[in-house]
Amino acid sequence: MRLSPDEMIFWQYGFFKLNATIVFSWGVMLVLAVGSKLITRRLSMELERSRWQNLLEVVVTAIEKQIEEVGLSQPRKYLGFLGTLFLFVAMAALCTVIPGYQPPTGSLSTTAALALCVFVAVPLFGMEQRGLGAYLASYTKPAFIMLPFNIISEISRTLALAIRLFGNMMSGAMIIGILLSITPFIFPIVMTVLGLLTGMVQAYIFFILATVYIAAATRVRKPKPEPDAEPNP
């Protein structure tokens, strides 16, 4: 039994390899990009619009609103990054209904890559918003002695992000795999439905945590120490 789709390698040339994670990621990306392209090809600016367009509008505006609610006053600036995080993770979870598919988020490599992106993006957004000095100074708040702890917290929460998503997605796939071998009927379906729910919740959590980190990093007025402990589902 494979713990990660990374182990399913289709092609390898030295360091380069084409495993299931990358292939399924491409699949998800293809679905998202092509679907968006198809739907937005004939966008209606009028009051009447297609159902698909309506769906996309609902999704995009919901994400935008969510970002705004967390505390980012210019949601459109962060929409590309944060929205893509959510949509990728959610679509990767949704596609588990397809037989033979393995969610790329079930690979620690993928979740680590996403967490790394967040790890890099947070200081970038923070510096862009507040300036390099002000951002770096925030690590020494409330006292200089907090600097190492702040750095540790930054690293640990990135790890937590990666491992939380990986654990949840992997466990879902594992449970389904195990159940299929024990009780081939009914139960795997129930667990798949549960897995869908878990996947959506995880996508939301990943997205909202990244948003909160960015919001904390870009907040000018009241620099608060970023939360060390995160809710573990």
């Binding site: 998202l32 990009a33 968006s36 392209k37 937005t40 966008l43 209606s44 600016m45 619009r49 367009q53 996309l56 509008e57 995009v60 935008e64 459109r76 929409l79 590309g80 929205g83």
Partner: peptide, 9 residues
């Protein structure tokens, strides 16, 4: 393909 056109619309 997604955010820009949708938001523009």
């Amino acid at each position: 393909f997604l955010y820009k056109p949708i938001l523009d619309a």
